[in-house]
Design a protein around this nucleic acid. Structure first.
Lengths: 215, 215
DNA sequence: ACAAGAAGTGAATCACTATTCATTCTTTGT
DNA sequence: ACAAAGAATGAATAGTGATTCACTTCTTGT
C-alpha cells in the first residue's frame, strides 16, 4: 500500500478539471456547442484526450457542466438585479435590462445558452436554466402582488412569459449569420445604440404584461 | 430516344414523394425528429432506402420540408384566426388561443416544432416559422395601432414577444417526460380543463403586453 | 418486341467522433 | 531505491446511421 491520494494530488486534479472546464467554456463561447470537440478541448487544456474522460463521464456530461456554469453566472446577475431596492416593477425592469444587455454583449455564448440546438442532456440543463430565471422572476412578481404594486396574476406563468418574450426577441439579433456550416459561428455584433433601441420595446411589452399598465 | 417522362410517371413520382413526406411527418409526430430515421421512414412508405434519396437531397432536406409543412398548417390556422372579425385585440386573442390549444392537443409535434433540438438546417426553418407567426401578429398589431384600438408600439418587437411568451409557456407542458433516451418521446397529455387553466394567464399576459390595459 | 432511359433497390460503405485501453509516466509510503 | 497505486496518454476502435452505387426492374416510343 504505497500510493494514497494526498492533498497535493487532489488539488492538482481539481486544477486540471478546472482547466478542462475553462477551455470547454471558452470553446463554446467562441464557436457554440456544435463546434466544440473533445480532442480540441483536450489540446487547449494541454492534456490528452483520455484525460478528459478521467474527469468527466462523457462529452455530454462535460458540456452539461459547462452549460450549468455559464448559466449560473447569468442567473446570478439577474438575481442580483432583482434583489436591489425599489418596487417589484422597477426591479423586474432592471433585471430584464441586465439579461438583455449581457446577452447582446456576448452573443455567441448567449445564443448557445438560449437557442442553439444542443443534445438532449444539455437541453435538460437549458430547461433548468430557464426555470431558474423564471423562478427569480416569479418571486419578484409574487412580492409585487403582495405589496400591492402588481395586480393579482399567476406569477409562475407570467414569469415564464417574461423569459420567453425576452429570449425570443433576442434570438433574432443573436442568431449567427447563416454561413457555410463548417465555418465557426459568426456573432452579430451590435452597437450600444442598437442594443438600447432593441431593448426598450421589449421592456415595455414585458412590464405591461406584468403590470397591466400602459407605460 | 425511348423513354420520355410522361404525365403518368410524373404523377406516380409525386405520389411516392408525397408518401415519403407523409410518413416522415408521421414519424416526427410520433417520436420527434430525434427518433426519425431514413430507413424507418422508407420502410413505412414501402420503398427502399435509396428511393428516399431519389426524392430528397438528404435527410436534412427531407426533414426540413417536413418541418415546413407541419408549420404551414399551424401558421395558416393562426392567420385564419387573425383574419376573422373584431378589433385587433380580439383577433389576437383568438389567434393565441388557437395556437396554444392546437399545440397542447398535439404535444409531440408541437414540441418538435417549438423546442426540440434539431439540426441547424432545420433550425433555420424554425426561425422562419417563428418569424412567420411574428409577421402575422405584427400585421394585426399594426392594424390595431392604425385603428386606434392599440397604443403605438414597435409592432415587430411586440409580435416577437408574443411568440416568445406563448412558445415558452408551452415548452414546459409539452416537453417529453424525461426517460431512457432510447424510448420514444412521451407526450404529456392534458385534459381540456388543464389546457384552459394554462392558457388563460398566458393570454392575459400577452394581451396586457400589447394593449397596456388591465384585463 | 426491343432498346434506351429512368426509377427502384438495399447491402455495403463511409464519415464522423466519442470513447476505450494497453502502455507509460508520477506520486507516495516504506 | 523500490513497489504499489494512480493518473495520463493518444492511437486504435467502435457505434451509429446517413449515403452510395452497381445492379435490377419498369416505362416508353418505335
Amino acid at each position: 500500500m504505497a500510493y494514497r491520494e494526498t492533498e497535493k494530488m487532489r488539488l492538482r486534479k481539481a486544477e486540471v478539471r478546472e482547466r478542462i472546464l475553462d477551455c470547454a467554456l471558452q470553446s463554446v463561447s467562441e464557436g457554440g456547442f456544435r463546434n466544440a470537440q473533445i480532442n480540441q478541448v483536450a489540446e487547449m487544456a494541454g492534456v490528452a484526450t483520455g484525460t478528459v474522460y478521467r474527469h468527466f463521464e462523457s462529452k455530454t456530461e462535460l458540456f452539461a457542466e459547462v452549460f450549468r456554469r455559464a448559466t449560473e453566472r447569468e442567473v446570478d446577475k439577474v438575481a442580483e438585479a432583482l434583489a436591489g431596492p425599489g418596487h417589484a416593477a422597477e426591479r423586474l425592469e432592471r433585471a430584464l435590462r441586465q439579461f438583455a444587455e449581457r446577452a447582446l454583449h456576448g452573443p455567441v455564448m448567449a445564443w448557445s445558452l438560449i437557442a442553439e440546438p444542443v443534445d438532449p442532456r444539455v437541453e435538460g440543463e437549458r430547461l433548468e436554466y430557464r426555470r431558474a430565471y423564471a423562478e427569480h422572476f416569479e418571486r419578484a412578481i409574487g412580492e409585487g402582488i403582495e405589496e400591492g404594486s402588481l395586480p393579482p396574476q399567476d406569477a409562475r406563468l407570467s414569469a415564464t412569459c417574461l423569459v420567453g418574450a425576452i429570449a425570443e426577441s433576442l434570438v433574432g439579433p443573436l442568431s449567427p449569420t447563416q454561413r457555410t456550416p463548417t465555418l465557426p459561428e459568426q456573432p452579430a455584433t451590435l452597437s450600444d445604440g442598437q442594443i438600447q433601441t432593441l431593448i426598450e420595446p421589449i421592456i415595455t411589452f414585458c412590464l405591461q404584461g406584468v403590470t397591466g399598465q400602459r407605460r
